[in-house]
């Protein structure tokens, strides 16, 4: 329990990495690191597919990265309100994140390759998410 608070709408509440949400609430964006082989995983996972170890620890991410691609959705599935901009970014740590671009930046011309920062964002109803901001 706890993961149901993540994102604009959630589809599952139980996961071994639900502490991710607690970290988000404290303003930290965390990945996991495999203690056996050192692989950094994001979005976080409790299990390392590289060495099959489940001996993992939380590790903070800088959140700094570059925009890889994006789209602005003008039609939204039920429960979402268009328009919104989805993006994929690669963080300094070499991992990628799929999320939204913050509303203020949405109107500006987004450029693939531009620097972005992944930040936590509180939503209503005690929900929490992360989004990308221009830097």
């Amino acid at each position: 329990m706890g993961f149901e608070k993540f994102g604009i709408m959630s589809y599952t509440k139980e996961t071994k990495v639900e502490d991710f949400v607690k970290h988000l609430e404290d303003g930290r964006i965390m990945g996991t690191r495999c203690k056996k082989c050192g692989t950094i995983i994001f979005p976080p996972r409790a299990d390392c597919a590289k060495c099959l170890s489940s001996n993992i620890e939380w590790t903070p991410l800088s959140g700094r990265g570059k925009l890889i691609t994006h789209t602005t959705a003008h039609f939204a599935p039920a429960g979402f309100e268009a328009p919104y901009t989805l993006a994929l970014a690669e963080l300094e740590e070499g991992v990628r994140v799929f999320t939204r671009i913050c509303k203020d930046d949405e109107k500006d011309k987004l450029k693939i390759g531009m620097y972005v920062q992944l930040v936590t964002k509180r939503l209503g109803d005690e929900r929490i998410t992360y989004e990308l901001k221009k830097i």
């Binding site: 959630s10 691609t69 994006h70 959705a73 599935p77 979402f80 989805l86 693939i112 998410t129």
Partner: peptide, 24 residues
């Protein structure tokens, strides 16, 4: 459903992201 659907991802959006990357 854990890490992408919560943001309102959908089929056309994914292919739009492929298109944007290809165009760039």
């Amino acid at each position: 459903i854990m890490w992408e659907s919560p943001f309102g991802s959908m089929m056309p959006a994914y292919y739009a992201m492929f298109a944007r990357a290809h165009m760039n």
